[in-house]
């Protein structure tokens, strides 16, 4: 993770939030105990629309965020966690460039509210390699030149690598099915299929790291 998150220093939002807490404390002193109890009861179950503190488990690491309930997982990953490997393209669940895994299943992070990812295992393209060792699907994408502009590639790799988690001996049809939601405007599908089938072979041969 880079240190880009430090660039803000004391943010305007942070200052306003602090000021808000002080004002609320004063107001609370004037209220009856009963009203307070009622408010506490309500506030336990209703949060937002301002920032909410949440913890997400991304690539095995717990990370704390202050996000509004309307933030999508894709936005939180890219903007708050500075993990820009996950791409936002259509932002409507139609192209799958934003594919990540939640609890081992591929999902569109652009249509997943970050609040819904609490308590779940999130895996992004950044978490696929193990240290310096690329995932076999990543290696074979390079080997087979399975990308042109590269914008769909992280999502495409997450779909193909997920298939190999579930199916060690996929057929060409299995691969087509696995990335049937991933749009590649450059039309590199044949190379994607070849790379994924080669990765399956590599993993079976024990050369992979997954």
């Amino acid at each position: 993770m880079s240190n880009r998150t430090d660039r803000g220093g004391l943010s305007r939002r942070g200052f306003l939030k602090g000021a808000g807490v002080a004002a609320a404390t004063t107001a609370l002193l004037d209220r009856s105990v009963e009203a307070l109890a009622q408010e506490n009861k309500e506030s336990r179950s209703v949060v937002g629309p301002g920032a909410v503190a949440i913890t997400l488990k991304v690539n095995g690491q717990h990370k704390d965020f202050q996000i509004e309930p309307s933030a999508t997982l894709a936005e939180v990953l890219r903007v708050h966690a500075d993990m820009t490997g996950t791409k936002i393209v259509c932002d409507r669940g139609s192209c799958s460039a934003c594919t990540v895994w939640i609890d081992g299943k591929t999902v569109c992070s652009c249509m997943t509210l970050a609040m819904d990812a609490r308590g779940r295992e999130i895996k992004t393209i950044e978490g696929l390699a193990q240290g310096e060792h690329l995932h076999p699907v990543q290696e074979q994408f390079i080997e087979h030149d399975a990308m042109q502009c590269g914008f769909c590639t992280p999502g495409m790799i997450m779909s193909c690598a997920n298939l190999l988690e579930r199916n060690k001996q996929p057929t060409l049809d299995d691969v087509k099915q696995a990335c049937s939601g991933n749009l590649c405007r450059c039309g590199t599908y044949p190379r994607v299929f070849e790379a994924t089938l080669a990765a399956a072979k590599q993993m079976k041969g024990g050369n992979g790291n997954a």
Binding site: G93, S94, S96, I102, T106, V107, S159, S180, G181
Partner: peptide
């Protein structure tokens, strides 16, 4: 229906 990703959601 839809895509594998959407069917998971």
């Amino acid at each position: 229906a839809a895509t594998p990703q959407i069917r998971n959601m």
